[in-house]
Design a protein around this nucleic acid. Structure first.
Lengths: 197, 197
DNA sequence: AATTATAGTGAACGGAAGGTCACCTGTCAA
DNA sequence: TTGACAGGTGACCTTCCGTTCACTATAATT
C-alpha cells in the first residue's frame, strides 16, 4: 500500500497504548486497526518492544523541540488579562489535541515500568511547565505586571493546579467544560493575588 | 496454612498491581509470592478479576471511612505554623505509608480502564484533599488566621501543588527529600501570601 | 470414629500472545 | 526481460496465561 505504514503503525500504537497500556495492547489488534495481518507489522518493526521504543524516541524528540528550545518559549504577556487568555489557549490546545492527550495518557500508564517514560512524565507533568512559566513570570515581574516574588515558586503554584485539571480531563472527559471554567477562575484568582496594583 | 490467606492475597495483589498493573500481573507469580501454587488462589477468589474487584471494594471502603466521614476531618490549625506542620505530617504519612503509595499507583495505572478506579482516582488526587482543606481554610478564616477569600479556591490552590509533589515521589522515590523540602517551601510561601498577621 | 469442610497440590486444558517463515505480488532499476 | 526488493499474507511455533479438576492432608463437627 503505502510508504508511510511505519508511521501509521506508530500512530496506531500511540492510540492503543494510551487506551489499554503497553501490556494490554496486542499486535493482532494493532495490525488489524491498520488493515494489516499481524505478521505485516514485523516488516517494519522487529518486535512490540521496538514499536514502544520508537514511539518513546518520537515523544522525547517532539518534547525536546517543542519545549526544550528557547525559541519556542511563548512571549511574555503584556497584561494580566493577556496571561489569562494565553493560559486558556494553551489549556485548550493541550486538552483537545488528541495526540497530546494520548501522549499524556501513555506516560501516565507506563511511568512506573519504563525509565524513559518516567523521566519524560516528570518533564511533561511538572518541570517543563514550571520552567516555562518561571520565564514568563520573571518577564512579567520585569514589566511590572506582577509583584516581585520568586518566579519559580509562582510558576509552580500556578501550573500545578492547572495540571491537575488537565489530568482530570484526561480521566473524565465529560468534565472538560467544568474544568476549563475552573482553570479560568483559578487564573483570575491568581492575578488578583499576584498582579501589581 | 492460615485463615488469613484471603487477606494476604489481597495485599500481595495490591503490591503487584501497583508495580505491574492489572494486565501485567499474572496469577502464577502472585501465588508464588505467597508460597502457594497458582491453583491455590482459586480456593479464595474465583478469578483474577474477582481479586481486582475485592481490592477496589476495599480501597473504596477504606477511603470512605478515612476521608468520607466528618469525624475524620483534621482539627483546624491554631496558627499558620500549625498549618505548615500539619501539612508536613500529612505529606510524610502519605509518602511513606507503603499501602497508601501502592493504592495511589494502582489508581494511576487503572484509571482509564476501570470506572470505579477512575472515580476513586479523582477523589484521591483532587476532590478529597480539596474538600478537606476547604473546611480547614474556612475554619482558619473564621479564626482570623487567613485573609478572607474563597476557601474552596484556596484549598484547590494549596493542595494541587502538594499533590503534584506527592505524585513525583511515587514516580521518582529518590527525589523524596527534595520534594518534601519543596512542600514546606511552598507551604511557607502560601502562608506568607494568604496569612493574616 | 466417622464425616465433612477447608486449604492446598499438581497435572492438564484451551486459548491468546509474540514471533517466525515460506511464499506471493507489484515496482522499479539494470 | 529479468531480477531484486519492499511490503503484505497465512500457516505455524512456542510460550504464557487464566482456569479447572481430581486428589490429598488436616482440622473441626457430629
Amino acid at each position: 500500500m503505502a510508504k508511510d505504514t511505519k508511521e501509521r503503525i506508530l500512530m496506531a500504537a500511540l492510540e492503543m497504548f494510551s487506551k489499554k497500556g503497553y501490556e494490554g495492547t496486542n499486535i493482532r489488534e494493532l495490525s488489524a486497526s491498520l488493515g494489516l495481518v499481524k505478521s505485516g507489522i514485523y516488516k517494519h518493526y522487529e518486535s512490540k518492544e521496538a514499536i514502544w521504543n520508537a514511539l518513546l524516541d518520537r515523544m522525547i524528540a517532539y518534547y525536546g523541540e517543542r519545549f526544550g528550545s528557547a525559541e519556542h518559549l511563548p512571549p511574555v504577556p503584556d497584561s494580566l488579562e493577556d496571561l489569562v487568555s494565553m493560559t486558556m489557549r494553551m489549556v485548550h490546545l493541550t486538552i483537545h489535541d488528541e495526540q497530546i492527550v494520548m501522549t499524556r495518557k501513555v506516560l501516565t500508564l507506563e511511568q512506573y515500568r519504563d525509565e524513559r517514560a518516567r523521566d519524560l512524565a516528570t518533564k511533561h507533568f511538572l518541570t517543563g511547565l514550571t520552567e516555562m512559566f518561571t520565564h514568563i513570570f520573571s518577564g512579567m515581574m520585569d514589566k511590572g505586571l506582577l509583584k516581585k516574588d520568586d518566579p519559580a515558586m509562582l510558576a509552580f503554584a500556578y501550573t500545578s493546579p492547572i495540571s491537575a485539571l488537565i489530568h482530570l480531563c484526561d480521566r473524565e472527559p465529560e468534565k472538560t467544560e467544568e474544568a476549563t471554567a475552573k482553570v479560568e477562575a483559578f487564573s483570575r484568582h491568581f492575578i488578583s493575588i499576584y498582579g501589581e496594583e
